[in-house]
Amino acid sequence: MQPNPTLDQLQILLAVAETGSFSGAGRKLNRAQSVISYGIANLEAQLGVKLFEREGTREPQLTEMGKAILEDARRMAGVMQRIRARVEGFNRGLESEVAVAIDPVLPAPVLIRTLRAFAQEFPTVGLRLNVGSLGSIVDQVVKGEADIGIGAVPGEADVRLIEIGLVTMVPVASPDHPLARLKGPVPLEDLREHTQLVVTDPSQRTRGRDFSVFAFRIWRLTDMHTKHLMIRAGLGWGGLPGWIIAEDLRQGLLVELDLEPYGQVQGPFFAMHRTDRQPGPAASWLIDIFKSKLGCFNEAAPDGLLPADLDGDVTRD
């Protein structure tokens, strides 16, 4: 079997290409020039191609095949660097992967900016992102399916909670909805006659309990995205996160309701982890950055409505 090029040979190739000479590569790698020349000669012999033109030039020049192989060498050297960085991180206690459970009520700009920073800070750490709601976030953390959770916590939780900021919920309806045509504050007796759309907890943690539910007729859904679409279609009214509906309010696709028993409300948002398991370095860093980014968002949007200059970070319907 023909021997494969070694990492050392590829590093010599990269050094010669970068410095433009065998002597420069020797200085860069702290090797004798004869070792550099020997390494390139062996690599050419193994591959059966000439990588450098040496005759008629003052310094070695890459051949066309040499240029092509150089790109492969760079990729292979990069893979080895990532392997080394991953191993070094593991030896320092850094996780190989972090699993995060996210409630979609979290403002999208906060999520995107946090994950963008995470990718830069921990390039060797994998990420598993699970999207849930209400008690399902807690369940994923308690069961060990997620290292940390980010969400609002209904009722008691078997986790350590770290408050990271606030999320605003706003009662809204389509402009053609009967409630949108009433002059407020709309009393409870009128509110009860119109279908309310409610996101229900898929876990058993709040079984038998309702939050901010006022109507006699209730349609229960399992996700905020569907609720948003149905309210915009005029199928009912309900509360939605301010950041999600900011553009809808600006364009007149939704209107904020003036209700006697239910107005715009801010609720706490938490990071959480199991009480018997401390998060690793990358997970702990994520909690701190989520808190920082959500705090910045709350300062930029104290009413919870997405400012126009943050619009580019949000994927719309």
Score class of each variant (00 low, 15 high):
156 E>Q: 13
286 L>I: 06
176 D>L: 11
142 V>I: 12
22 F>L: 09
109 P>W: 05
287 I>Q: 04
58 R>Y: 10
126 G>I: 00
245 I>N: 04
26 G>E: 02
92 R>D: 11
192 R>K: 13
13 L>V: 02
160 R>L: 14
246 A>S: 08
184 G>N: 03
60 P>A: 08
177 H>W: 04
204 Q>A: 15
259 L>I: 07
1 M>E: 07
231 I>N: 03
13 L>R: 01
289 I>H: 12
16 V>H: 08
315 T>C: 12
76 M>R: 15
16 V>R: 07
149 G>W: 06
174 S>N: 12
92 R>E: 13
198 V>M: 02
155 G>S: 05
23 S>K: 11
66 G>A: 10
233 A>M: 09
106 L>M: 12
6 T>H: 08
186 V>I: 14
221 L>V: 13
226 T>A: 13
108 A>E: 14
129 L>C: 02
120 Q>H: 12
65 M>Y: 13
179 L>G: 01
38 Y>H: 14
235 L>D: 00
87 V>I: 14
278 Q>W: 06
9 Q>V: 01
24 G>T: 02
96 S>D: 14
224 M>Q: 13
72 D>G: 14
306 L>Y: 02
282 A>R: 03
84 R>L: 10
287 I>H: 04
33 Q>H: 11
267 G>R: 10
62 L>Y: 04
49 V>Y: 07
154 P>V: 09
53 E>L: 14
255 V>Y: 01
288 D>W: 03
164 I>R: 06
74 R>S: 08
247 E>S: 08
277 R>V: 10
40 I>T: 01
313 D>T: 12
131 V>I: 15
17 A>Q: 07
249 L>R: 05
109 P>V: 07
241 P>Y: 05
14 L>Q: 12
302 P>H: 02
199 V>A: 04
66 G>Q: 06
235 L>N: 04
21 S>N: 08
184 G>W: 00
186 V>A: 00
81 Q>N: 11
250 R>Q: 09
27 R>I: 08
52 F>L: 12
254 L>H: 00
293 K>Q: 13
278 Q>T: 11
248 D>F: 00
66 G>D: 03
216 F>C: 11
284 S>K: 07
115 L>T: 04
38 Y>W: 11
163 E>W: 02
242 G>C: 04
295 G>D: 02
209 R>F: 13
91 N>K: 13
32 A>V: 11
270 F>L: 07
214 F>Q: 08
196 Q>D: 09
224 M>I: 15
78 G>P: 00
216 F>A: 15
176 D>M: 12
165 G>Q: 07
72 D>Q: 15
263 G>A: 10
143 K>W: 11
299 E>L: 09
196 Q>F: 03
179 L>K: 00
134 L>D: 05
76 M>L: 15
192 R>W: 09
193 E>H: 09
